[in-house]
Design a protein around this nucleic acid. Structure first.
Lengths: 316, 316
DNA sequence: TCCCCGTGTGAACTATTGCTCATCAATTGG
DNA sequence: CCAATTGATGAGCAATAGTTCACACGGGGA
């Protein structure tokens, strides 16, 4: 086709695009104006889009978040990803992601058919549970991925499973075990006893796993909360631990370590690669390496984070 | 409603808009993603538009033209307006507007039901006629608004009516009169004779009038072509003439003058205000005051011009 | 010259979107 | 505390947009 016609076709495409998107006419009107069939007007509008003659710009902070979420989803083959605007007032605030996690839980629990939700650790997860809107779903099941008894024998304040069950009337399965056993043998023994095996079995069928992601540094939450000692933490760091999910430490490639506390952990380990919908929830510059490793290692296939964290992950 | 909810609603609107326009999802998909009904998703997309969260940008020279045409249409209450990109190589070229005029004529003449087209003077009009695609429409009528005999008695080379009739097989009505009579009396006598009255009658029923717009300055086309003498031209300029349509001179407010050559003109005068679709076709910096006056005086209700001229008219 | 290929076209059909209306929940004022 | 008002909601329908298909046109190449 002659270059001149090609050009005039693009001109018409631009005209059609202008009339459609900017002037707000229907394609039928445009067809009459341009003296073509409606089908041709539609083709012109498509062409205008295809040739990128027209661009959309979303003037809203959310736009950047959507963009980041789409890139994360693509890059790490995630089944679900949400990025919330970073709160400039509180860059580490979990409020934003907690709201999204709560929304996700709401959506999942709204289902009439029975679902199983498994919960891990993390402030965001805990906060999310508090924000779930109460709903009566006695046929759902809520299961904990981590032991809720801390080193000193008291019940952990992370009783997220119980709280979520309160709000839904669902059956719930806390894990009646200490976070760490004293030896590998003992761990292996414990996880085979009936009540624990039952919890594991339910967790294995979970429709959704919602987990926090912890970094393994001097401020590691597992240490701050008293689940692992300073020495245990340092040992894991020497072994290359960079992050943890439900206590399971992994290295910078997202490989679960086969040493140290991992041998004595009672938590249910992540699937590798994650097949069940497994959503990680975490924010903060300190957690970026841990989150990135979890994504690369396919320990999670979903992520809820904030804008600053998302950007940092993508820029690595 | 609380400000927080309001904000979250706008967030959702932005999300929906992003998913719709940028990610290209359907509203149904968006509804599922956002956990709302499809109707609500549609409302969110509308809201996004209404709140101008999203803007469209058309990266094409045509965009500016469409914008200018829309402003001219609005400002002067035009029923039709087209602005073509100015050709940087030939700022006065009528090629662009001629093409659009031809397109307009094509569109009008394509009609199966009989239509009457009246033609005025002007290079653009003449060039447009040459570009009309031949079509067999014996029931159409083409009528001239101006005498086609020049001062020296020869037939004018502006035989646009004949040329257009050739291309369409339409009946045509040239105006067998000199452009100017020697006196007002004589003019009044001539326009009453049968063949002329017939032409006037047909012209009065025209569905479309396509006319050129001439400026009244030393390079006025009516003078250059020898229809009016230098003295006559200067006299009209003294009377305030700034432009002419089919020879009828008007002042800067678009009021037809009641003096000088206007008293001896045989051309069919413009309707004031224009009720029939009356399209003016003109480009060039020199014609800007004439075009603007014609628009203000409602001598025309349609305009075909180029980008530079359109901009100049709007900036006055 | 005739044929073939690529391209564009409109008709007809399907999918998507926009709108109206009845309903319902929340908030406010009496 | 209740009625009135406001505003959001979803169902259902009408309008609009998108797709598919068969066909026509026009420009090379045999």
């Amino acid at each position: 086709m002659a270059a001149e016609n090609e050009k005039s076709r693009l001109d018409d495409a631009a005209r059609a695009g202008w009339l459609y998107f900017i002037a707000g006419h229907t394609q039928d009107e445009i067809a009459r104006m341009l003296q073509v069939s409606r089908a041709s007007a539609q083709r012109l509008v498509s062409l205008c889009l295809a040739e990128r003659l027209i661009t959309f710009r979303l003037e809203h902070p959310i736009a950047a978040c959507m963009e980041l979420a789409a890139r994360l989803k693509e890059r790490f083959e995630l089944s679900h990803c949400e990025v919330v605007p970073a709160d400039p007032a509180a860059p580490q605030a979990t409020a934003g992601i907690a709201e999204r996690c709560a929304n996700l839980l709401d959506a999942t629990l709204r289902s009439e058919t029975p679902v199983i939700v498994a919960l891990g650790t993390g402030r965001a997860v805990r906060a999310a549970v508090e924000r779930v809107t109460p709903i009566d779903r006695p046929n759902h099941q809520i299961v904990s991925l981590v032991g809720n008894i801390s080193a000193d024998g008291s019940a952990s304040f992370y009783d997220t499973v119980g709280r979520l069950a309160d709000r839904t009337g669902a059956r719930h399965y806390p894990m009646p075990l200490p976070f760490l056993m004293s030896s590998e043998d003992e761990r292996n023994k414990m996880v085979r006893i009936e009540p624990i095996a039952k919890v594991k079995a339910v967790a294995a069928k979970a429709d959704l796993r919602l987990v926090g992601i912890g970094q393994m540094d001097q401020k590691a939450q597992v240490h701050v909360d008293g689940f692992v000692t300073r020495d245990e933490l340092f040992e894991m760091m020497r072994q290359g631990a960079i992050g943890e999910i439900t206590g399971w430490a992994y290295d910078s490639k997202g490989r679960l370590l086969k040493a140290g506390t991992n041998k004595r952990l009672t938590s249910i380990p992540p699937e590798v690669p994650a097949k069940t919908t497994t959503i990680g929830a975490a924010v903060g510059a300190a957690k970026v390496p841990a989150i990135a490793a979890a994504l690369n290692g396919r320990l999670i296939n979903g992520l809820i984070t904030d804008e600053a964290t998302a950007r940092a992950i993508l820029e690595r």
